Simulated scan of single mutants.
Amino acid sequence: MTRVLVLRPEPAASTTVARARQLGLDADAVPLFEIEPVAWNAPEATVFDGLLVTSANAVRHGGEALQAVRSLPVYAVGGATAAAARDAGFDIASIGSAGVDDLLDSVSPDLRLLHLAGADRKPPTESRQRITPVTVYRSCPREVALGEVAGAVALIHSPRAGRRFAELVEDRRTVTLAAISPAAADAAGAGWCKVAAAETPSDEALLALAAQLCKTLRPS
């Protein structure tokens, strides 16, 4: 059976592994990064209309400063992010399904949004809203042992993960990449057995792609 490598940080890695195994995939969690909170001071909540949350890590690691902005509704990039925000006590104003740019295109251009973000982030493209980013967490590279990766399918959840995985793999020719977006695929560079991007930037679409790729591969 083709090995599937889940490279995203915990606890999301374990969630993805569980979903993958439900699909019959031979998945293992090999997180390339560890999430750490970053100390931050919350601005005055009354000058914003809502919170832009593009990762569940923002509410998991936002710390006590989140209390100062808990009155603001959350504009979440996807269902998992919305669920984490709801569990943290926030009201949800809108949930996207195809990335942050599509989310922002679907809401009022007059919104003033506080973006609870990671240190490594890509700003939204040509957003019409007034967006103020604040760093509340960072992802730090881990020392990892990938084990045997020949013949495996690696799930690339971000451009940074693509770059990091490319640094760690000596022989790319027998490794297939399933990327959550074209940007994540491009970041991994060339020389892989095969590279494909999910139809939408979601864990569900990425796992569906991985399952499809596994059917076309034979274990080495």
Score class of each variant (00 low, 15 high):
Thr2Arg: 08
Arg8Thr: 05
Glu10Phe: 07
Pro11Thr: 04
Ser14Thr: 13
Thr15Trp: 07
Thr16Glu: 03
Thr16Trp: 05
Thr16Asn: 11
Val17Ala: 01
Ala18Ile: 00
Arg19Tyr: 11
Arg21Asp: 00
Leu23Gly: 07
Leu23Arg: 13
Gly24Val: 07
Asp28Gln: 14
Val30Leu: 15
Val30Gln: 08
Pro37Phe: 13
Trp40Gln: 03
Ala58Val: 10
Ala58Tyr: 00
Arg60Asn: 08
Leu66Phe: 06
Ser71Thr: 14
Val77Ile: 08
Gly79Arg: 12
Gly79Cys: 02
Gly89Arg: 01
Phe90His: 00
Asp91Met: 04
Ile92Phe: 09
Gly96Ser: 05
Ser97Arg: 12
Val100Gln: 15
Val100Cys: 09
Asp101Trp: 08
Asp101Ala: 00
Asp102Ile: 08
Asp105Gly: 14
Val107Ala: 01
Arg112Gln: 04
Ala119His: 11
Lys122Met: 13
Lys122Pro: 00
Lys122Ser: 11
Arg128Gly: 15
Thr132Gln: 11
Val136Met: 06
Arg138Ser: 04
Pro141Asp: 02
Pro141Trp: 11
Pro141Glu: 15
Val144Phe: 13
His157Asn: 09
Gly162Phe: 10
Gly162His: 06
Arg164Leu: 08
Ala166Pro: 01
Arg173Phe: 02
Val175Cys: 09
Thr176Cys: 13
Ala183Gly: 02
Ala184Leu: 13
Ala187Leu: 07
Ala188Phe: 07
Gly189Leu: 07
Ala190Val: 11
Cys193Glu: 15
Ala196Arg: 14
Ala197Asn: 03
Leu206Gln: 14
Leu209Ala: 01
Leu213Asn: 09
Cys214Ser: 14
Cys214Trp: 05
Pro219His: 04
